[in-house]
């Protein structure tokens, strides 16, 4: 694997080079928070960010997208809408990268999703490894999804010391971009420095998550009732979750009633409508059932219990208006599981 040592100035060069082929997105400040947003250069970005409000999934699994246009004439004409543009997402944290890798897996199962995959194919992801927990909400270390990325990126950066980065190449696409730039090659000492940072970083996490044995979760545990009392069923947890992929598809018809678009919109299992069927039937009418569904899905329900689909980014905890904490719920459930 190729690796280089680059300065802050080199990173600016990297972005300038990338701008020739990609639109660049990176973390920028929004009030007291951060969002991934279009940037002109490195100066627009805030590299020392904790987490963005929406994860990078918004670039690949869009909150709202037009799947196709249709016309009702003599028959039914459709025109697929798939115009993926090349984008570079700069400064992705390892937790978010791992989330993208899970989405990759999901959208390329038996039925491949051409919309998602074409956007992924055109994208270039530059990971920014974390030198430690960004704040009290981070818990990637206990799920092995951070703080240092182990692969799956195009390029990865680790800040070795102020203004000096290790740049690792993880894909041919990443290679293609950096090869023209003649950055100095990394020496063993640099790789060792990274290992030291990794060893240190892992121990900076106060929050831990242990979801093992929680699929299936105890369904009648009182914690569900307690949390449901606080929960607004507002969907924030799943909308900001980097691995939640549930969506809804519907048609919007134009004023002529002769043409329209088919739309895909990000959905959330926390919403009442999500589990609603014809004639108003609903499989998860109770708030408790919806909350429990989402958490058990994150515990590993979605992966058939084989792996947790939580990457420990901390968004669902830090952004929950009701103050619900998945790690706390898990530990309460574990008590029961342990003694069962």
């Amino acid at each position: 694997m190729k690796a280089f040592v680059v300065s802050y100035g080199d990173l600016a060069k990297l972005i300038d080079e990338a701008k020739k082929s990609y639109t660049i997105y990176g973390p920028v400040r929004k009030g007291g928070s951060y969002v991934f947003s279009r940037v002109d250069g490195l100066g627009d970005m805030e590299l020392n960010y904790n987490r963005t409000i929406l994860p990078p999934k918004k670039f690949f699994h869009l909150p709202y997208e037009v799947l196709m246009k249709f016309k009702l004439r003599d028959g039914f004409e459709i025109e697929a809408e798939a115009k993926a543009e090349p984008i570079m997402v700069f400064g992705v944290h390892p937790c978010d990268l791992n989330a993208i890798l899970r989405l990759d897996e999901f959208f390329s199962r038996k039925f491949e999703d051409p919309y998602y995959l074409s956007r992924r194919e055109k994208s270039l992801i530059v990971v920014l490894n974390c030198r430690g927990a960004k704040d009290e909400y981070c818990f990637c270390a206990s799920l092995n999804t951070g703080p240092i990325a182990e692969g799956g990126y195009d390029l990865a950066l680790t800040e070795l010391e102020a203004g000096l980065f290790l740049l690792e190449v993880g894909s041919p696409k990443g290679d293609e971009l950096v090869e023209k730039l003649n950055f100095p090659k990394a020496e063993v000492e640099h790789l060792e420095a990274k290992e030291r940072i990794k060893a240190y970083a892992k121990n900076t996490f106060h929050r831990r998550a242990d979801f093992e044995g929680l699929v299936p979760a105890p369904l009648d545990h009182p914690v569900w009732e307690e949390e449901a009392k606080k929960c607004f069923s507002c969907g924030t947890c799943s909308l900001v979750c980097p691995t939640c992929y549930c969506y809804d598809i519907y048609d919007e018809v134009g004023l002529s009633l002769k043409e329209g678009i088919r739309v895909r919109r990000l959905d959330s299992c926390q919403l009442y409508e999500y589990s609603e069927v014809a004639l108003g039937g609903n499989f998860r009418r109770e708030r408790k059932a919806r909350l429990r569904h989402w958490m058990t899905c994150k515990f590993g329900g979605a992966g058939g219990g084989r792996y947790s689909s939580c990457v420990g980014c901390g968004r669902c905890i830090s952004l929950c208006p009701a103050g619900i904490d998945i790690t706390e719920v898990a530990s309460k459930l574990k008590e029961v599981v342990k003694y069962a």
Partner: peptide, 27 residues
């Protein structure tokens, strides 16, 4: 929609006003 404003608010990537201590009715 029957779902709350928070859905649209989060997708607009707003900071949560309720968390910031303002009496938002969104949820």
């Amino acid at each position: 929609p029957k779902y709350p404003v928070c859905v649209e608010c989060k997708l607009s990537e707003n900071e949560c006003l309720l968390i910031k201590g303002e009496p938002c009715m969104g949820p």
